[in-house]
Nucleic acid binder design. Structure first.
Lengths: 235, 235
DNA sequence: GGTAGAATTTCGGTGTGCCGAAAATCAAGA
DNA sequence: TCTTGATTTTCGGCACACCGAAATTCTACC
């Protein structure tokens, strides 16, 4: 009689595996998985074996762990849940960006599909969460906005902020203070000498952003509609 | 690493123990507890022993199980959560009376205090749930409306429905159809001969209600404000 | 007061996810 | 190619909530 807990554990493994490859294509190793989950390596090896038998991942011993199409489907389901819940907490309950994560981490495993879709409906089926991360549709499709890391944007380019990584809450708060938020139009002025900060202009204001910030902000130089993008996965 | 599950299990035991004595004062036995939880008697004996060490219940071997004041505090906390969530699902998401239970059963263990109280705020700190069951306050006080079972109401008495037991969803739907709902004014006309149905008048309409219904409906013959009542427990 | 039957507890055992230590495997430099 | 250090897996064990069967205790009737 452990069904509930089981599901939640499996979902967490799959979510972390997926997250690792969402913004870069390196497959994950068991030790990295263990670190991300805060578990011993031996525990992860065991569990990965079970996920393999369940058809959610492939894993050659001593090699990388990769999601099967079924695993991806589950991961996208969890991603939808997580990001919808975060959006909901921010929109309806005035949570701050940096406060939603723990609550969403729990609720993504426990809300019924019915309630989750009702919430999605009340929010107007949003296509991205407060950080700009795309929210997969209920049938497992994702539109990832075509974007470049601000760090990699060529000098002189103009773009709209479409994503800000939620890795570092401190950074989120700093950017919020500086009014560098989603959908703000940015002009890349140029890089300070000796690997220094990147000068950008937002509205009338000029900012010098360090590596930490420019590696966390994605901008889109294309059309302003969030409908654009590339289909990432299909269920 | 089993904190989450643990908590949820303990909460369920305490909730069931409390529920058993909420509307009648018989203490519960381990076998009844086991039946209500759907577990083997031996499992319950073991767990009750642990709840005892945790200071939540008292239990003399082969005797009844009773909540300590700390146990009651936890039970009221869970009752508040359960009933607030049910109210919320009905009011905000248009769930039916008979559809809220399972969802609430899960969420009562997983919503954070912060989110729960935010929901309570949005609902306007309701004092009773859709069935008329009192919602304990955040600091553990309950106002139980002074009410009598319709079955026990004297002939000729007039009263307002203040509670309808949620034990039987079929009955709830039937009563809803007949527009016998919370706050409806009822006049007890009289009992049909030979232990038959009870005739009551609601508005202009007359109903004959069987034992099942009259044992599930509570009416208040006192003042019409839901603020009246007796303090039940204090934390 | 004794005893049969019911209620309750004790006892041995299960499955799950986890851990640390030891063994196996891999990868990189000499 | 061989060795050595790092990574990964295997192995024995743990905690938890649970179960069925056996032993114990209670209760009610004679």
């Amino acid at each position: 009689m452990r069904a509930a807990k089981d599901r939640s554990v499996v979902e967490d493994y799959v979510k972390v595996i997926y997250a690792h490859t969402e913004w870069q294509p390196e497959p994950i190793t068991t030790s990295v998985l263990a670190a991300r989950l805060g578990l011993a390596a031996s525990s992860v090896t065991e569990m990965v074996k079970k996920l393999g038998s369940a058809g959610l991942v492939t894993h050659v011993p001593y090699g990388a762990v990769e999601l099967t199409s079924e695993g991806i489907r589950l991961a996208l389901r969890m991603l939808r849940r997580h990001r919808l819940i975060e959006t909901w907490l921010v929109e309806v309950f005035a949570y701050g960006w940096d406060e939603v994560h723990d609550e969403a981490e729990v609720l993504e495993h426990t809300l019924s599909d019915r309630l989750l879709e009702a919430i999605a409906g009340q929010l107007g089926e949003p296509s991205r969460d407060p950080h700009g991360d795309p929210i997969p549709t209920a049938d497992g499709r994702v539109l990832r906005p075509e974007a470049v890391l601000l760090r990699d944007a060529p000098e002189g380019s103009i773009g709209r902020i479409v994503r800000i990584s939620d890795r570092d809450p401190t950074l989120l708060r700093y950017l919020l203070d500086e009014e560098i938020t989603l959908d703000v139009e940015l002009t890349v002025l140029g890089r300070k000498p000796f690997g220094g900060a990147l000068a950008v202009q937002a509205g009338a204001v000029e900012h010098d952003l360090g590596e930490e910030a420019t590696a966390s902000i994605w901008i889109s130089t294309g059309e302003p509609s969030p409908a654009g993008g590339v289909p990432l996965e299909t269920s």
